[in-house]
Design a protein around this nucleic acid. Sequence first.
DNA 1: CTGATTGTTGAGGTG
DNA 2: ACACCTCAACAATCA
Length: 651
Amino acid sequence: MPNARVLYWFRTDLRLHDSPALKAALDLKPEVLYPIWCWDSHYVYHARVGNNRWQFLLDCMEDVSKSITKLNGKSKLFVLREPAVTLLPKLFKAWRITHLVFEKDTDSYGRDRDAQVMESAKKAGVEVLFESGRTLWDSDKVVKANGGKPTMSITQLQHAGEKVGNIAAAIETPENLPDPGDLKLDIGQTQPDGASDINAKYRDGEEVSYGSGIAGPNNDFAVPTLEELGMKPATTPHRGGESVVLQKLEEILSDSDYTGTFEKPKTSPAAFEPQSTCLTSPYLHFGALSCRYFYHRVEEVTEARRKAKKNISVPPTSLTGQLLFRDMYFAAQAALGWSFGQTYNNSHCRFVPWHLPSKVNVETKLITGGYEVDDAEKEKEFQRWAKGMTGFPWIDAIMRQLNIEGWIHHLARHAVACFLTRGGCYISWERGAEVFEELLIDHEAACNIGNWQWLSCTAFYSQFYRCYSPVAFGKKWDENGDFIRKFVPELKDFPKKFIYEPHKAPIQDQKKAGVLISGDGAETERGGVPVYPKPMFDFPTQREVCIQGIKQAYHVGLHGNDAKVLDGTWKQLFDDNGEGPTEGEQGGPGGMLSFEDAEGTEDGHHGSPILKRSSKAENPSSGQQSNVKTAHKRDRSQGTLDGAFAKRAKK
DNA sequence: CTGATTGTTGAGGTG
DNA sequence: ACACCTCAACAATCA
């Protein structure tokens, strides 16, 4: 198609290697190709994204932009400061676009956004091409091969994957790219409304990215900086980018023993500098590394070892097994949609009367972003967990590493997730998932949600009697407590004997180590001496409380979509003395006495918020509306990089 | 259909 | 150091 004018819309595919969507765009032999990024209010204001993940994203964007320029000096990643849903209809006209090409997104949010964009492309007479490229197999095909059901075990995923076919071989990186067309833009900018900025705590300056116009402060479509977003500098040592990870991958692969015999359960969660796993997850999330390329390169190493009769590891514990789990979670989410990310109305998530349950909108059947504080003590425990002040050094070290570096080992995630939910606090997994969503640089909605369900024994896994100890589990890997000494520095000189249970140390030992073990974490210093809190509960007691609670919930046997969960009468089935907000006969689905107001449903619209139409909203450019009133924060927090917003025409 | 086995990654004990 | 057993006990898979 020699006259094709292509808009290549980068999203979570920030790479040039092995990109089926980019290949589809280049196969059009376009006259012009605009590589673009649409700046997205969802990511800026409404999804939980801390400054560390922001930095990683910006690194990936900067890197792919440089790679584009290397292939064509006139081109780069053109970053447009406006969400795709309002921007693209204008861009189609301004740049006389004939084709829109992007990588398929099966995240619930991405699907809704893309449906809306495709509708506007159709109206504008623009042809849309998209390719699956984020997973080993197209997640929708996996679901179909699994009988239309979510893949809830690794064997289901493996069987379904076999039916779909071989994992596609990697596609060559292009050697050149077409010129971009004319960059003149004479269109108004629709700015998102930053009023409900969920990430405000990460900002110390004015957010100016939108205020400086569609092409940015220098009018050159440059990749923004954290400073431009008013965000505090990142604290993570991990840096993003396709070129960074491709080099890293070569180092990993060059160690045949490591790559070929990798077994996840045998890697230490306490290792740091370097960590025990290869830390490719954030690159996979942003698409800087293709999971299929990774898979096949690891297979090459494994095959060579097999021929040489050397040891090899196999799925599910091997490196390729990790990629299979990723596909399993993607296909589970692809099948279940929005309900996958919550207990309420989720057909495959067990109902457990957790503390701090999510509030729900009973009309949309979506969680609202808020939660019920059924017990003030539990709220306190949650806050102490989130910042690493539980008084259990192993848990606190992990949570502090998460806060500072944005990455923690998979088994460390197990330890803290089990502790918050079924093995300690008995707090809803949805609370934990939200904290991880905010802090992890590798946050992948499908994997995060799936793993939280796994660890809380609400889906994917059910052996709730296998419970991680906040003392014994860490000790198994790191008897000396070096990991604790690194991330809980007030304990750095604590005697080895008590490093996992400092409250058991005699006061003389505490004095000698220069730290006082006291209080609930509110006090961090007394008379110049650092204070580390006492444990917030007796773990063996809480372990028993949790196991009995889960056992009863399993016995009751409700899932998120059972009628008694939907209408709140589940309480009748639970012992009033059971753990969690179980008292009474009836209550809100979350557990409290009243249902959350079904907000934003006055027009009687149903379905996911981004697709709603409201006669009240205005959108002069496309005639379509997003209704910010119906699109609550948490309703929008599972998607990727674009979103719903209130329209505010630039003056 | 039944019953045995298996399930990426528990803890605590023994030999 | 490491293999193996038991504790209590869920649910998918397979013969």
